[in-house]
Nucleic acid binder design. Structure first.
Lengths: 152, 152
DNA sequence: CTTCATGTAACTTCATATGTTACGTTAAAT
DNA sequence: ATTTAACGTAACATATGAAGTTACATGAAG
């Protein structure tokens, strides 16, 4: 099953953007992901429509965050991406006539709904600021000061 | 994202098999799913390898359950299918050098592991007998007697 | 007016569950 | 024995959607 890695990708680049003062170009961001600038624009465009980031054209342009890191949750980003399907499995038919299949679907859907609620609750509870703190905690101690105090 | 509906499909046909005395052919089972007998054989073969069903060749052959309904959990069936990926999303790289990406991955993986544990726990708690009971509860009352007492 | 950036359409690539065709093997019925 | 009905399995086709790519238009700074 081919995985959708847009959420992972976009979180990665948003945090790199947060470490910069100036707008980050699609070209720069695409290098963090080992991909193509067009892929970055396509994905970031969804976030712009949701008001999470801004883009500027022309010389000196690029992408910037539209809000504080603490005001952007993973859930908001997930929704901005169009709330893509979370699960790689599902029922064969959504409205079967067969009573057996209805019984099977109901049990599977019940479990999926519980798992989805759990995932979305976790996404909602995490902000970009939390991820930035996680990242900084991974830095060697002598570098942590620079990032925490040396920048905006 | 294309969904894997093997779990749903196989549960559906297993319950139909449980309502029959004689072996069910791939041809018959494929009609419940609106698909091809070869697809049924391919999927059921995994269950046979896990000891959940038996197959017999030749005239009068077909598929039968190898255990009581109450002795087969959804989890066992899921494992028999090769424990396919549950999620349609994931990290872009599994072993990134980038500390930012590591922080992102850790958070996403944490949420996925929780959700996976929940799903598997639900699957483990449900047997085919539970699904059969669910199905029978959906029958009109005057038919429930026939199925509950009129058959093995 | 040149350069550098995004915006976007159109197309290709890739992975994989699913669908299909074909043929071999096995076992019961005749 | 031969026919028939079933599974076993390889090989190939189809469909879907994220990701990758190419091309060109638009807009802003120098």
């Amino acid at each position: 099953m081919k995985l959708d890695s847009r959420l992972s990708s976009v979180l990665h680049v948003l945090l790199h953007m947060a470490e910069k003062e100036t707008p980050a170009t699609s070209e720069i961001l695409s290098r963090y992901l080992g991909t193509n600038p067009v892929v970055v624009r396509r994905t970031m465009a969804s976030l712009r429509e949701a008001g999470l980031v801004r883009s500027e054209r022309g010389r000196g342009g690029g992408w910037t965050l539209a809000r504080q890191l603490s005001a952007i949750t993973l859930r908001q980003i997930y929704e901005a991406l169009g709330a893509p399907a979370l699960f790689a499995f599902g029922n064969r038919n959504d409205r079967p006539d067969c009573l057996v299949e209805q019984a099977v679907n109901a049990r599977i859907e019940g479990a999926m709904e519980e798992a989805e609620a759990l995932l979305l609750a976790r996404f909602e509870a995490v902000t970009l600021a939390d991820l930035q703190a996680d990242f900084r905690a991974r830095l060697p101690v002598h570098l942590q000061e620079i990032h925490v105090h040396g920048r905006a």
